[in-house]
């Protein structure tokens, strides 16, 4: 019985909350708001001003440039590594060092 009363009280409370916006009056917009809109229009119409969809965000631009520089850097590094005479010499040396080991391995059957 107590639960039923509590539930009906709760439902009543919810109805009160949901109906609280009924007959709500409109608020007046601040008096000088249109002056500010006009100021923004002036700014928009300035010849140097770009429309929002024409503007490139600085962060996006910086990110793009950084990606490009990183990609170029990696490419240059890889090309310089493969083309340098040191690498060729190193390769030759390492294969020459490997030869005696192979030879020994050939005779060392047991």
């Amino acid at each position: 019985m107590k639960n039923i009363i509590q539930n009906s009280e709760k439902e009543q409370w919810k109805d009160n909350v949901l109906s609280s916006l009924e007959d709500m009056k409109r608020t007046e917009a601040p008096p000088f708001l249109f002056t500010r809109i006009e100021a923004r229009i002036r700014l928009y119409e300035m010849p140097t001003h770009l429309a929002a969809n024409e503007r490139v965000p600085v962060l996006k631009l910086a990110f793009g440039v950084a990606c490009f520089v990183l990609l170029c850097g990696i490419n240059i590094w890889i090309v310089s590594q493969t083309a340098s005479p040191n690498t060729v010499q190193q390769y030759q040396t390492s294969s020459a060092q490997a030869a005696p080991i192979l030879e020994t391995a050939d005779f060392d059957l047991y």
Partner: peptide, 13 residues
Amino acid sequence: GITLERQEYAKIL
């Protein structure tokens, strides 16, 4: 725009 007596309910809504 909401009357004082409904203000508390409106806040919750």
